[in-house]
Design a binder for these strands. Structure first.
Length: 594
RNA sequence: GCGCCAAUAGCUCAGCUGGAUAGAGCAACGGUUUUCUAAACCGUCGGUCUCAGGUUCGAAUCCUGAUUGGCGUACCA
C-alpha cells in the first residue's frame, strides 16, 4: 500500500474541483475526518471550502464531488451529503484488505528509521531525599516519550543528570554527622534514599528552630536564615567538599552511594532505565569556556564586579547573570556546559529536557543564549514542560512531609491490585511468584496510566484519599481487554488455522475496529511529534473499548462460518498486539491472564 | 508590577492543523451472565465549553480584553 485511501481521496477531490469547477484547491485545504457515528459512512470530506469554486449549494457541490469520486475510486460503495459534509462509505472488502495486508502484517506500528538522533534527559533527581509522586510523573513521561520516539524512527539516548552535589546534600551530611550515630541502611534496614532523606528533614527541623530563636532575639527573617549556625556549618561543609577535603568526600561518596542504591531499586520497580548518567559533580564546572566564547563574541558583557551578564531585554526577557563575580558557576552556567557536552558526546539532532513547568523561564533563557552563541544545534533543543502534581491541600513539600512517597505509593497500588484480584478470584492455578508479578503489573498499570493519560502540560491533581480506579478509563481496563483476548486465542488454538480467504462482509463493530487499528501508526507519529504519551494512552483506551464492543456483539469461536472465525481470531490477535505494543511504549506491561 | 501556563458535565479528563447535535470514565439510577473472563457491555441522568467583544459560511479551538487559579521574575538549583 503505497498511498493510503485518505491520500487518494484528497488527491481525487483536488482533481474533481479542477475537472468539475475549473478550480485550484490546495490539498492542504481539504479536510478529511472520520464520519461521526450517527451518520452512514467511514470517512467524511468537508466541502464548504469547495463551494467558492462550484458556486453551488454545499449539498449540490457534495453531490457532484461524490459522483466524481465514485467513478474514480472503486473502493467507494456509496456516499451521502448532509449539509456541507460528504460522507463516504468504503467497501468491506477494502477494510478487510487493509487489515490483512497492513494491520496484521509484521512491524505494524513501527515507523522506519528517520536517521535522526535524539537525546531525552529525564528524572534528574537530587540525592538528598527519596523520590515522590512528582518524580514519578517525570520518570514515566521521560521514559515513555523516549520509547515513542524510538518507535517513530529516532535513534534515542536516555540520559539522567544526577544532581549529586551542592548545599542540599551537605545538609543531609551534616545532620547525619551530628545525630546519625553511624546509622547505615544495612544496620537500620532502611532504604538508602529514605535514610538520607530522614537526615535532610532532621536538618530542616533543627534549622527552623535556630531561625526562630534568632528571630526571637531580634533578627529579621532574612538575617536569621543567613546567620543560623547550622546553615553556616552546611556551607562550610560545601566549601570543604569543593576543596576536596578527603573526610568530606568520603562521607559524600558513602551517602550518595546509599541513595543510588535506593534509587536503583525504585527505578527498577518503576521500569525506567537510562543509557547515560551525568553527574553534576563532574559537570558543575563546565560552561566557563562558553562564557569566554560569549564574551569574545560580544554576546555577554562584564560588569565592574567581574560578574558576567547577558542582556535579553530586546527579546522581552531580563538581564541575566551567567557567571558570578568570583568566577564561580551558577545554574545556567552549568546548563550551558552540559548542553555542549551532550552535543559533543552524541551529536544529536534534537535534545529533550523533561523538566517541570516551574523552570519554563530558565529554559527559555538557556535556549536563547545558546542560539545567540551561534550553536547550530540550539534549534533542536526542547523543554518538555509538565505540570506539577498537586494534592488537594496544595503543593507537595518534602521538607514539610506533605509528599506522596514513590515507594509507598507503589506498595499501595500493588496491595490494592492484590485485593481486587483476590475478590474476583480468577487467578487459581497461578504460582505465588506469578501472582506477585501480576499484582505488580496491574498496580503499576493503574498508576502509570493514571499519570500518563493526562496531557503533560496540564497540572495533575492527586487525592491520596481517593484510590486510583481499576475500572473504566484505566490501565487495568486495557490490561483486562488484553488478557481476555489471550484467553480466547488460547481456547481457539490460535495459530493453527490455515491461510484464510478474504472476507467481503464485515460486521459494523469489526469494521470500526479495523478502522481504529489502522490509525495506530499515525497516532505514534503524532504522539512523537508532540511529545505526548497522553495521545497514545487515550488511543489505546479507544481501541480496547471498541474491541470490547466487538467482543460483546460478535461471537468469535462460535462464529457461524469457519472463515469468519479465523478472521476474527486474527483481528483479535492484531488488537492484542496493538494494545501490548502501545502499552509497552507507555512503559506498561500487559498480562496473559488476570 | 511584568512574563508564562491553565480554565470543558457534581468529580477526573478527551476533543488532532477552526467543521455536523461538544465526547469518555467516575459518581447516581436501570438493564445484560445455562453463550469466548461482568476489571466487561447497553441505557438514563448530567454542559450559558470562566466572562465579554472580534475574525469566519462556521469558534471549545484563532485574536483582543477581563476574571480565577498555578508558576516564574535569585550572584538557589
Amino acid at each position: 500500500m503505497t498511498q493510503t485511501i485518505q491520500q487518494q481521496l484528497i488527491h481525487h477531490i483536488k482533481q474533481a474541483v479542477k475537472t468539475l469547477f475549473d478550480g485550484d484547491l490546495p490539498e492542504g485545504q481539504i479536510t478529511l475526518q472520520e464520519t461521526r457515528k450517527e451518520f452512514e459512512g467511514q470517512l467524511t470530506a468537508v466541502i464548504f471550502p469547495i463551494t467558492r469554486f462550484s458556486r453551488k449549494s454545499p449539498e449540490a457541490t457534495g453531490e457532484a464531488i461524490g459522483q466524481y469520486l465514485m467513478q474514480h475510486l472503486p473502493e467507494i460503495t456509496s456516499f451521502n451529503t448532509i449539509k456541507g459534509f460528504l460522507n463516504i462509505s468504503l467497501s468491506d472488502t477494502y477494510w478487510a484488505t487493509l487489515f490483512t495486508t497492513h494491520i496484521s502484517a509484521e512491524g505494524f506500528g513501527r515507523l522506519p528509521s528517520n536517521g535522526r538522533k535524539l537525546l531525552v534527559e529525564y528524572s534528574s533527581p537530587n540525592t538528598n531525599k527519596p523520590l515522590h509522586l512528582g518524580h514519578i510523573r517525570n520518570n514515566l513521561l521521560g521514559y515513555s516519550v523516549a520509547e515513542i520516539l524510538k518507535a517513530s524512527g529516532y535513534e534515542v539516548t536516555k540520559a539522567n543528570l544526577v544532581n549529586d552535589r551542592g548545599i542540599h546534600i551537605c545538609k543531609s551530611m551534616l545532620a547525619w554527622q551530628r545525630w546519625g550515630n553511624g546509622e547505615t541502611p544495612e544496620g537500620s534496614g532502611m532504604k538508602g534514599d529514605h535514610l538520607v532523606g530522614k537526615y535532610y528533614v532532621l536538618f530542616d527541623q533543627a534549622y527552623k528552630k535556630e531561625i526562630d530563636a534568632l528571630k526571637a532575639a531580634g533578627q529579621s527573617e532574612e538575617e536569621a536564615k543567613k546567620n543560623a549556625p547550622l546553615i553556616r556549618d552546611a556551607q562550610e561543609l560545601l566549601r570543604r567538599w569543593e576543596a576536596g577535603d578527603p573526610e568530606v568526600i568520603t562521607l559524600w561518596k558513602t551517602m550518595n552511594g546509599w541513595v543510588y542504591q535506593g534509587f536503583e531499586e525504585t527505578y527498577q520497580r518503576l521500569g525506567v532505565d537510562f543509557d547515560q548518567y551525568y553527574y553534576e559533580s563532574d559537570t558543575y564546572l563546565l560552561g566557563k569556556d562558553l562564557i569566554k566564547e560569549g564574551l569574545d563574541k560580544g554576546v555577554f558583557y562584564r560588569k565592574e564586579d567581574q560578574s558576567v551578564w547577558i542582556d535579553l531585554t530586546a527579546d522581552g526577557l531580563d538581564e541575566k547573570l551567567v557567571l558570578r563575580g568570583d568566577g564561580t558557576s551558577v545554574y545556567i552556567t552549568q546548563d550551558l556546559g552540559t548542553a555542549q557536552l551532550k552535543y559533543d558526546d552524541f551529536g544529536v539532532d534534537e535534545s529533550i529536557y523533561v523538566v517541570g513547568n516551574e523552570q519554563d523561564y530558565h529554559f527559555k533563557v538557556l535556549f536563547l543564549i545558546l542560539k545567540k552563541l551561534g550553536k547550530s544545534w540550539a534549534d533542536g533543543l526542547f523543554h518538555l514542560s509538565y505540570g506539577m502534581v498537586d494534592l488537594p491541600s496544595g503543593k507537595m513539600k518534602s521538607r514539610e512531609g506533605t509528599v506522596v512517597d514513590a515507594d509507598d505509593l507503589m506498595d499501595e497500588m500493588e496491595d490494592t491490585a492484590r485485593k481486587r484480584t483476590e475478590e474476583l478470584g480468577k487467578t487459581e492455578g497461578l504460582a505465588a511468584t506469578e501472582k506477585a508479578h501480576l499484582y505488580h503489573i496491574i498496580g503499576m498499570g493503574a498508576l502509570k496510566y493514571f499519570l500518563l493519560k493526562v496531557e503533560p502540560k496540564k497540572r495533575l491533581l492527586f487525592d491520596p484519599n481517593e484510590s486510583i480506579d481499576f475500572q473504566g478509563h484505566t490501565g487495568p481496563f486495557i490490561q483486562y481487554t488484553h488478557a481476555r483476548i489471550k484467553s480466547v486465542l488460547t481456547k481457539g488454538d490460535y495459530g493453527s488455522q490455515s491461510i484464510i480467504e478474504l472476507l467481503t462482509v464485515l460486521a459494523p463493530a469489526e469494521r470500526d475496529l479495523i478502522q481504529l487499528l489502522g490509525n495506530y501508526p499515525a497516532v505514534i507519529e503524532s504522539a512523537a511529534r508532540e511529545f505526548s504519551p497522553a495521545q497514545l494512552a487515550n488511543y489505546i483506551y479507544d481501541v480496547a473499548k471498541q474491541y470490547n464492543k466487538f467482543y460483546h456483539e460478535e461471537s468469535i469461536l462460535k462464529a457461524e462460518d469457519g472463515n469468519v472465525r479465523d478472521f476474527r481470531m486474527n483481528l483479535s490477535a492484531a488488537t492484542a498486539r496493538v494494545i501490548a505494543d502501545g502499552m509497552k511504549l507507555l512503559g506498561i506491561e500487559v498480562p496473559e491472564r488476570m
